[in-house]
Simulated scan of single mutants.
Amino acid sequence: MTTRHDLQTRLERGIAALGLQLPAGAVERLLDYQALLARWNATYNLTAIRDPGEMVSRHLVDSLAILPYVQGATLADLGTGPGLPGIPIAIATPEREVLLVDSNGKKVRFLREAIRSLKLENVRAVQSRVEEVEGQFDCVTARAFASLADMLAWGGHLLTKSGIWLAMKGKHPEDELAGVPDGYEVRAIHELHVPDVGGERHLVVLGRTGC
């Protein structure tokens, strides 16, 4: 059986491999979040990943891998599911205001319970279609949410003039680049190396043209 100590070791190893420094207490809160997700997942099927160690690597460490590219005081995480990457980012950067967006009611109920039980005062969750969300954000994140074209068509209005969009992808999204709508541009594509996670991982950084 995997103990909390085992999970903490795996998480700390992943954080160190990414070269990150997290605030005091962040590792404990991340493990509390994983434990809550595992408990709810047994009933509500929030994620296909069931193994606690895999949850640490494929959810927590994978989310934290984009932290060096996150910028600004406000962030919206679209199609967040059970809070990925939004909750790990919010725990790692408690000074940032984070909005979690998902259209699935049971996932949003979980998000609200996570916000309450983990005392995430910098986080809000809304049940909504992306195109109906209001406000603008310095940074928008999306993990395995949609094509680049659809992401920006549905949620581009949420990006401030100088904001950046961080789209988390598996393989290099070569076939999606031509579909980026007018008014937006690809700023960079970073290959991510996530400890204990096989397969390709890429981060596409987008912004408004001329900004």
Rank of each mutant, 00 (worst) to 15 (best):
V140Q: 11
C139S: 07
W165Q: 00
D175R: 15
M151L: 15
S147N: 02
E185A: 10
R143T: 08
K171V: 07
E174G: 04
E176I: 08
A167K: 01
K161H: 12
G170C: 09
G183K: 01
G163E: 08
L158H: 11
W154D: 01
S147V: 05
R143Y: 06
L159A: 08
M168G: 05
F137Q: 04
P173W: 08
L158K: 11
E174S: 12
G179F: 04
D182H: 05
C139E: 04
A146G: 01
F145W: 06
L148T: 07
T141A: 12
L177Y: 05
A167N: 03
P173A: 09
V133R: 07
K161N: 08
V133D: 00
V186K: 05
F137R: 03
P173I: 09
V133E: 01
L158M: 11
S147K: 01
E185V: 13
C139D: 04
V180E: 14
G135C: 09
T160R: 14
L158G: 06
K161A: 15
A146N: 03
T141Q: 13
E176N: 07
A178L: 07
M151S: 12
G163Y: 02
W165G: 00
G179Y: 03
V140C: 14
P181V: 04
M151V: 08
A149W: 02
P181S: 09
P173F: 10
C139V: 00
D150R: 13
D138R: 00
D150E: 11
E176V: 06
G179E: 13
L159K: 10
G183H: 10
V140N: 10
A167G: 03
L158I: 02
D138E: 09
G170F: 04
F137N: 04
S147E: 04
L158Y: 10
W165N: 00
G183Q: 11
A167W: 11
A153K: 15
G156T: 05
F137T: 03
A149Y: 06
L177T: 01
K171Y: 01
M168K: 08
W165L: 09
E185I: 08
D150T: 12
G179I: 01
L159P: 02
T141C: 13
T141R: 15
T160A: 06
K161Q: 14
E176F: 11
T141N: 14
D182F: 07
F145Q: 02
L159D: 03
G183T: 10
D182M: 03
V140H: 12
D182A: 15
W154I: 02
M168E: 02
L166R: 14
E176M: 05
T160I: 02
A142H: 06
A178N: 12
T160S: 09
V180Y: 14
E132F: 09
T141G: 11
D138V: 00
G135P: 05
H172N: 08
G135L: 07
F137I: 00
D175Q: 15
S147F: 10
I164V: 15
A146F: 07
A167Q: 03
L166Y: 14
V133T: 11
S147W: 10
F137H: 08
M168Q: 10
M168F: 11
G170D: 10
V133A: 06
A144C: 08
